[in-house]
Structure formats: structure tokens, C-alpha cells
Design a protein around this nucleic acid. Structure first.
Length: 109
DNA sequence: CGAATGACCAAGC
DNA sequence: GGCTTGGCCATTC
């Protein structure tokens, strides 16, 4: 049914390991620059096959600790995938922020 | 239907 | 980079 949230999942699913995307970027790429909050909601109810831990806010930090383990687990998963976090729990978006390129070519870290 | 809430973002200080 | 204000929009009460 190609609902907004379906499109979000489709995009997040193709994010390679060790890479992250911001809510706003996802919303913008889908053609809805103002619907960042809905992206957040989509991930809040995300199915198991969606690597929601690869989606962070625009500062590169994981959000929401309400879920079981939530933010902490997601951050650890990213670290396992090779994402380096700083003391404030944020990663370097300039290095890890990914966007759907045709080549899906992994850049040098 | 209206008010409050939220895994957000951009602009201004 | 951090705080405040305004905005966008779906979901919940």
C-alpha cells in the first residue's frame, strides 16, 4: 500500500551496516520535508525486519529511551557495525550519514 | 472535534 | 554546540 511508513521502512532496510540516516533526511527523500515526526513514529512502530537502530536524529544521536533498552541498544548496535560515538552519544554524521546512492558504494572511513 | 504529545527540524540568540 | 520559538503532522486522549 505504499503508505508513508512503508516507504520509510523500504528506505531504512537498504541502509548498509555502519551507516546512519536522519529522520529529516528520510522524510525529505520521500518527498515530505516536513514529516520528520512521522518518520519517528514509523520507526516507533517498526517491524522486526527494519534496522531502526540505523536511524538517528539530525545530530547523529539515538533518540527515545522509552522502549525496552531502546536508545542504548541501538547505539551499541551501531558501534558493533563500526560507527564511532563520542562522549555525548553522537556519531559523526559527516562520516556516517548515508543516502540512497545508486552504487551503494562504501566510502572510506 | 479539540487539546496534548511525540524516536523531529530549522532559524535565531 | 546548546537553548528557545515556531512549525509540521499523525496518533492518542
Amino acid at each position: 500500500m505504499t503508505s508513508f511508513n512503508e516507504q520509510v521502512y523500504a528506505l531504512v532496510r537498504r541502509v548498509p551496516a555502519g551507516r546512519v540516516m536522519s529522520y529529516g533526511a528520510i522524510a525529505h527523500l520521500l518527498g515530505f520535508p516536513g514529516k520528520a515526526r512521522e518518520v519517528g513514529w514509523a520507526l516507533h512502530v517498526c517491524p522486526d525486519d527494519v534496522p531502526a537502530h540505523r536511524v538517528v536524529n539530525r545530530l547523529g544521536g539515538v533518540s527515545g529511551d522509552s522502549a525496552a533498552g531502546g536508545a542504548q541498544i541501538r547505539r551499541l548496535l551501531l558501534e558493533e557495525e563500526g560507527v564511532d560515538f563520542d562522549s555525548r552519544g553522537r556519531c559523526d554524521l559527516g562520516r556516517y550519514h548515508w543516502e540512497p546512492t545508486a552504487l551503494c558504494h562504501p566510502q572510506r572511513l
